[in-house]
Design a protein around this nucleic acid. Sequence first.
DNA 1: AACACGGTCAACCGCCGGAGC
DNA 2: AGCTCCGGCGGTTGACCGTGT
Length: 268
Amino acid sequence: MEDYERNSNSPTHEEDSDVRKGPWTEDEDAILVNFVSIHGDARWNHIARSSGLKRTGKSCRLRWLNYLRPDVRRGNITLEEQFMILKLHSLWGNRWSKIAQYLPGRTDNEIKNYWRTRVQKQAKHLRCDVNSNLFKETMRNVWMPRLVERINAQSSPATCEPVESMITDPGQPIEEPIPVEPGFLQFNQQFVPASELSATSSNSPAETLSDVQGGVVNGSGSDPAGQTGFGEFNDWGCVGGDNIWTDEESFWFLQDQFCPEMTSYSYN
DNA sequence: AACACGGTCAACCGCCGGAGC
DNA sequence: AGCTCCGGCGGTTGACCGTGT
């Protein structure tokens, strides 16, 4: 990267050469961890100056929060976490840090990356905008129910924990009540016809969502008629009606692209 | 083996709001 | 009230890596 080279190799700019950019070294990590363990993770500019690291306070903070923090979780996003991300994003939009609060150990950066690389990709493949009604309906009526199904299938049938319980992790302090969209709650265990969802969610949900997303979700007269959960939805039409998906096309698309780990579910 | 391509993710940037003076 | 500093946040970038050709 230009900045990396300029700052690390060519000290032609005296001010720039005082600030390191680019990937952190192990030594820098060690210094930062040591310093934070002694002084705490606040006053980042002070930490940056006092530690001798030629980094900005912002850079130190980011490195700590996204990588060095002891409770940071790394690795694959679980099904439960995928569900939470989809659900919370539907409520709050791109409020990554807020969403991250309900995914212990996950950083806003990681969630943001997940959304951009996985979820937005699907919107692109569907040839619709991520904020379009079609995409939101697909998330709500197909992907999320599928995730719920998969999650519940993972736990023993006798002790199927309601998926909604995940939203109030007892180990996680909830600072404010989460505005829950009524339609979503009904996805647990049994799927409710979309017509019922739209009927029960035609008022408050739109308000909730519009608060967050500027009303882009509202006006969903485009509810696919007769949806009764996965495998029973009818043809999908993209905005403009130029891209119709059959049941089977949608199923295989979603399985391959969104839940590649799925192997045992068969389309009926 | 070499190259192209796409996905992932760490890190930076600019903006904003709150706190302190 | 206005200014400055700082931390937090969301958007974006670019290096790296795996995979396909």
